[in-house]
């Protein structure tokens, strides 16, 4: 049984966007804080720290999860995916990102990384979603800028693109 005393710092190591990352942290440190403050991965944002807003959503072993409701020690030995690992390279955005840009599905961009991670998981499991399913999944996020409609449109288009039956390329 692993046992870490309060205040004791243990080595936490996991795969962050395909690369190993590690740091010595107390058991109470949240994964969201580890990502931002220890790993320097500031692409993941913190909006409420009680699991409602969705800004901090990351992939934990591929499953969209709130990093503010996860302890850093819980990520040990796992893989964590964030917005910073989405794009295939410097030249291009991935289909979901590109659709967000085309549809003006972001304004301030603060909630966007979490939303992108949710739909990365969601579309992998559900490549041909209905709009209602997209809305259901998006309801786990709060966006204050866009009015949501452009986000739904972007996800639907990204799904089409990823299925390969896009009638137009994501700009």
């Amino acid at each position: 049984m692993l046992r870490i005393a309060p205040g004791e710092r243990t080595l936490v190591t996991f795969e962050l966007d395909g690369r190993p990352v590690s740091g010595h942290v107390e058991p109470r440190m949240l994964l969201s804080d580890f990502l931002r403050q220890v790993a320097g991965a500031t692409g993941t944002h913190v909006g409420c720290e009680h699991g409602v807003c969705g800004c901090c959503t990351v992939l934990l072993d591929g499953a969209a999860s709130r990093s503010c409701l996860t302890l850093a020690v819980q990520a040990h030995g796992r893989s964590v995916g964030t917005v910073e690992g989405l794009a295939p390279g410097e030249q291009a955005l991935n289909a979901l990102q590109a659709a967000f840009r085309k549809h003006h599905a972001l304004q301030c961009g603060f909630c966007t990384p979490g939303i992108l991670m949710s739909f990365t998981d969601f579309l992998a499991r559900n490549p041909a979603p209905t709009e209602d399913q997209v809305r259901d999944t998006l309801s786990g996020h709060i966006c204050r800028c866009t009015g949501y409609a452009p986000i739904v449109a972007a996800v639907m288009e990204a799904a089409r693109t990823l299925r390969g039956d896009a009638t137009e390329n994501a700009a």
Binding site: T42, V83, E84, Q97, F100, R101, L106, G109, A171
Partner: peptide
């Protein structure tokens, strides 16, 4: 025209105050 801002924001490369 789609926004210039989006390229960085969509990659998690925004530069917010806490970053």
């Amino acid at each position: 025209i789609p926004r210039k801002e989006d390229e960085a924001l969509l990659r998690g490369r925004g530069r917010y105050a806490d970053d």
